[in-house]
Amino acid sequence: MEDYIQFTSNLKDFKQDQKIVLTSKTSDLDVLKYYLSIQGPINKEVTLLLEKAIDVKKLEKENQDLFTLNEDDFLKELNSKKFKKKINEILEDYKKDQKKALYNSCKVYLLEKYFSKKEIFPSMHKM
């Protein structure tokens, strides 16, 4: 039986079929690159679904000034009480446990947007 890894999706707006068959010639780096190649589209879809779940226009509009900051000030601002207050206002209609997850999602969303402009990523999902 062959060794393989496969990711498939036939959702209306998210179609994927990526498979790697491991042979004696497949290196660990080949497998790592395969994982990276499926993480990119998955992360993009997560971002799109998040954009449907929260008011992204409002999120970006209210945080536009963050993108003009340098890295240190950007991260300071992202961890500030002022930022938390702003985001919680956007998420006021959500239940408490979902609110916490979405609050962190908003942080990741802005973090990835900010760092992707600098072509460096704080996690490997956008590579």
Binding site: M1, D3, Y4, I5, F7, S9, L11
Partner: peptide, 9 residues
Amino acid sequence: EIINFISST
């Protein structure tokens, strides 16, 4: 509509 992730190594 389905989403599958399988690793069989």
